[in-house]
Design a protein around this nucleic acid. Sequence first.
DNA 1: AAATAATGTGTTTAAATTACACATTAAATT
DNA 2: AATTTAATGTGTAATTTAAACACATTATTT
Lengths: 246, 246
Amino acid sequence: MAKTNHTNQQTNIKTLSTIQTEVESINRIALSVDCVIFGFDENKLKVLLIRSDLKKFQGKWSLLGDLVDPKEELDSAANRILKQRTGLDDVYLEQVKTFGCLDRHPAGRVVTVAYYSLINIQHHKLKILDNELHWHDVNDITELAFDHKQILDCSFEQLQRRVQEHPLAFSLLPKKFSLRELQNVYEAILDTKMDRRNFRKKFFAMDFLVDIDQMEQDVPHRPGKLYNFNYNKYEKKKKKWVGIDF
Amino acid sequence: MAKTNHTNQQTNIKTLSTIQTEVESINRIALSVDCVIFGFDENKLKVLLIRSDLKKFQGKWSLLGDLVDPKEELDSAANRILKQRTGLDDVYLEQVKTFGCLDRHPAGRVVTVAYYSLINIQHHKLKILDNELHWHDVNDITELAFDHKQILDCSFEQLQRRVQEHPLAFSLLPKKFSLRELQNVYEAILDTKMDRRNFRKKFFAMDFLVDIDQMEQDVPHRPGKLYNFNYNKYEKKKKKWVGIDF
DNA sequence: AAATAATGTGTTTAAATTACACATTAAATT
DNA sequence: AATTTAATGTGTAATTTAAACACATTATTT
């Protein structure tokens, strides 16, 4: 049974049969966690999906999830899933909502707590552990297994709201990024075009980007300056912006 | 065991011993729902609490909650609790977050889905079913049983965010209300003072308040006009305001 | 009849957001 | 090496939105 053991990446991934054992034909509720793992690549917002192992949903894609162990915190379960599937620790994670429809899982009553997470695909690229995993354009997804389309929609909407009030975009980018890349993240998430001058003005005014005195490499045009996000500077200043910008 | 039977208001309220039966000494997770029931009275935001029946929390107040039946939807469980405790149907309800700390319940692993609801205390006043229930000023609460203070804080913060983007305030008021009462609701929830002229200008511009051509009664001063909230007018116009006002 | 305590109403000022154009740079092409 | 290309980098004016502000009116109370 899965504990909060994050050291072994491939063990402890539950299968359908495990779930059926936990909930089969009984007056009981099983609890799971599902992770909506967002990434950013090719100027598109992506989500990491796996092929469903249920015959009912054969060929369909689904979110990454697992049952919660009775001795495991909810956040720990979400972190465990991320570690198992992407190899990444210290990922931005946020609980979205709990989904509990009676018929949402064919194996019985499984209530699931949805999380979304933001990861840097470049950082993750070399660590794909499972070739049934693939990144999909969020906007291209029309159908998923279980109620996972509903969970994805809800998570995406929450991301769209939150990204306008919290510095989440940086979690989708490498540590060093150009202002153009940053703007691309916002444009992809919010599905808008922004004015470059106003965008730069706004972020420089917030004063938590630090110019690291390096330029982009290997771009087929004039390279832009690279910046870091300074979380400490953000923390010190954010009170002023509550309800305003960030 | 409690079903989604809303007809009998006083039956089916689970006790600690029931909870212990469901989770005792076993490798299992129990699921509950806790309701943060907000009301508005004497120009203060209130929350409905009950005295805890656990000796560990003797004398402490707690939220209204119950275990979720395996055949019951989460929303239905929340509605059932509201019906049982207040006699009210058709109450504004919103899921807040799920709390699952390992040690949050002395009887074992109980994961709880928190909801908040908004009710009109005047409408509810004559229906108090349980004299262990009391309305408390939200701002006066320092400690609650279990992790209920944390749940209350989280729900209150969500209410503060949501009330600025959705027409929730009306759920706390009678069907007929004056603009002063409406402003008082916003001032209580957001803990601010607002300019009366700007407030009125804003709401009239949104054009979903209907003047019902009646005046306040029994007020010790010049009576104000009474209005209804027209949800249909709101629905038709809200697209324009997404990200602006409501 | 006078005093009280609230309602009801527009305009002016400040702040925030939006719109907008051209010189510069490095890479790619000829 | 010179030219073309495709992006970066920068400031100001116009518009929109939010904030500040005062006095006449009405019903109740004294």
